[in-house]
Write a protein that binds this DNA or RNA. Structure first.
Lengths: 232, 232
DNA sequence: GAGTGTGAAGGCCTTCACAGCT
DNA sequence: AGCTGTGAAGGCCTTCACACTC
């Protein structure tokens, strides 16, 4: 049944949603694809193409109704019932993510954290309780956790991933700088900070070449940066 | 003059390098594409294709000489003279990155940090001195900084990016959850934690559809009992 | 006129498959 | 036999261009 959708479209829909939330707060009742395009750093055609996956929402000379589009994205991206995540490794990066994610969405929530440091265990961090690693299996199973966020040192990552997968998570967000081996059916998104940094450094150097032969520009299409995305 | 190379290849070369460093430490004198492939999570053909960009290095039935391949990647990825970066926003995320990057490479180094918090200013954090934001322009210009790492709240991000670009950086690593507007020739790599998280959640849900039959040795795969509560 | 929805074209990247080497 | 290097094929995604709508 699954309509297949490009991974990149999912990422962009997430971006559009945040732009739309801001627009709605600014009382913008309608929005055009070229406006979204500007804020999201992609072409207008791309925006319309992505929105196609939601079913058609727009009105030809009037753009999209902000709240309607927002609802459609919510329905599409979010689970019908909320999803549960855990975070393993409460270092600076783990703390940053707890700060960033905790309490932000009701439909996608970090339910527990894990760390080897006994000093952190049983404490509340940003409203999230911290447990020893030995509890991973039990808690993931009992609470039916869907997603694991790995912010552990690379030497520990595979072992933790194995435990999470054995306990039934279906997705991993991996910040450790190695590629995890996981069973079929488990989705892994790698956020590789080292690669990202080295990539920026590389293209910062190359960048001078990129004197793009610009279009006969009928109008301000711009989006004048070279653009990357992470992910993976 | 630039040989054009896929962005993804750059990312993967960065991954291969780390794998090779470990292999070299394990005294592996040679390495096959299928070995790299396994550790990097891509196909062997992809590995060979990426290595093509470096010029040919391998010996048909003997694989690649580890140190030779490593040198070639270093030469390709790294600047002939070292590149300099600064980091703006010393919150948890900024600290995590300082920890992660500082002193790790001599050819790519974070030279200064910036924060609005006066308590952090003039202190040394992981060997990196912290300055007030007002110093950005001066320091970036004087030290000829190439890359800026933005770990500031989203409301501050565009303003900081403008200052960095005006002072001459050629690349930005942006962790703020919005798309920056930058002048032509400045490369932006977005690391969008929100998108990544939402993407994992989405595909973790979708993944269940891919119930590929016949996974032999798979025993009790959790998610047992109640199923009505969770479907799509 | 101004914007959306979308088939078709195009481009980038990955995979295939096999020649060639050792 | 086993592995690399690489043209060719394929697939995924983006962009173009235009019919259609208000």
């Amino acid at each position: 049944m699954t309509k297949i959708i490009p991974e990149r479209s999912i990422e962009r829909l997430s971006v559009y949603r945040r732009v739309l939330l801001q627009l709605r707060d600014a009382d913008a009742a309608v929005v055009f694809s070229h406006e979204l395009s500007k804020h999201a750093g992609v072409t207008a055609a791309q925006v319309r193409r992505d929105i196609m996956h939601l079913g058609c929402m727009g009105v030809p000379n009037s753009g999209y109704r902000t709240s309607e589009l927002l609802d459609a994205i919510n329905t599409f991206l979010d689970a019908p019932e909320s999803q549960r995540a855990v975070l393993i490794g409460v270092g600076h990066l783990g703390l940053a993510l707890l700060n960033h994610f905790s309490g932000r969405w009701r439909w996608l929530h970090i339910h527990a954290a894990f760390d080897t440091d006994a000093g952190k265990q049983d404490t509340l961090i940003r409203g999230v309780r911290c447990y020893p690693l030995s509890e991973i299996g039990r808690i993931v199973r009992e609470w039916r956790i869907d997603v694991g966020i790995l912010t552990v040192p690379k030497d520990a990552a595979q072992n933790v991933a194995d435990r999470l997968c054995a306990a039934g998570v279906r997705g991993l967000l991996n910040f450790a700088s190695l590629r995890l081996q996981v069973p079929e059916g488990v989705y892994v998104e790698n956020v590789d900070l080292t690669s990202s940094f080295e990539k920026v450094a590389f293209f910062a150097r190359q960048g001078s070449k990129a004197l793009d032969s610009s279009l006969p520009c009928d109008q301000a299409e711009a989006v004048n940066s070279v653009e990357g995305t992470q992910s993976h």
